[in-house]
Amino acid sequence: MRYALIVIPLLLLPVLLNDFWLTQVMTRALILGIVALSLSFLAKYLGVVSFAQAAMAGAGGYTIAYFGPNSVNIGIELPFWISIPLALFLATAFGGLIGCVARRSRGIYAIMITLAIGIAFFYFTRQNYALFNGWTGFSGVRAPLIGGISLRAPVPLYFMSLLSAVVSMMLVSGFARSPMGLAIQAVRDAPGRVMALGISVSTPIIAAFAFSGLLAGTGGILNVWYQERISSFSVGFGPIIDILIIAVIGGLRYPSGAFIGAIVFVMLDTFAVDLVDRERFNTLIGTVLLLIVIFAPNGLQQLVMDGAAKLRRAKQPTN
């Protein structure tokens, strides 16, 4: 019911918005939101802040570029119904691998190890030409044609991103209620006790990272179609920090906050040029982040929920 209230207006957006708003703002926000969701999932359910989400998204994106039509003549072209599952699989496996490396680290150490992995992946893509085409990467990547319609066209790409975002949210809430999802949350709260119940501590951690790899990979695939290219810059410092900023703005403890954070981020990124000059964007986003951390440490999602609760109380003065 609550989902319908949000999703139905979103379904109508293509009629209401022009291509610029639909693609540059909404589609982009949905894609970034999915990648940020992969981070807030880990933060909320495993209690780990990961800096390796851009790398997981990159694993999905690079796979699609390598096994899809591109203009740099690297890779093997496969039909999309093979390359998409392959890209999702590799992103999931990469996430699991990162979880395996990071499984003994918590708190600040988990941040450092995932950051190291993210940066190592960035430098690796710059130096490897056979698979990643070095720092220039892949350009001219074309989204699949389905029935003669390109998925890159504004409306199909928007719907594809919206569908992916909705499915991702449903997967997160379903997974959190699965036995493995409960084990993941138990590891977050008391890892020693998990062991005492006869449950492995490593397996839930690896599963959580793998699942976040699946989400990040989904965003990564969409992003390649949207940008029509991918390069080392797509997995560098910039995107790593952007994903974190989006998740924090929305509220690390709220999966749906990732999308609120993404909208705010994209709006600022798109319209900051009109407010401040291009070079000042980092200052602006930094200021917004600072204000949020100080005045709404649980992010905008919490602010929205608090506001809604206040409204509801105001409407029922008898209670």
Binding site: G174, F175, R177, S178, P179, M180, L182, A183, Q185, A186, R188, D189, A190, G192, R193, V194, L197, G198, I199, T203, A207
Partner: peptide, 29 residues
């Protein structure tokens, strides 16, 4: 040292699943 973020139900479910097995299932309970 309990799981503060879980419910009593989920905690006891894990206690049982730790012995009976199947705590690694991926579909909603």
């Amino acid at each position: 040292n309990l799981f503060n973020g879980l419910t009593v139900r989920d905690t006891l479910f894990l206690a049982v699943a730790g012995i009976r097995g199947g705590w690694g299932q991926l579909l909603p309970l």
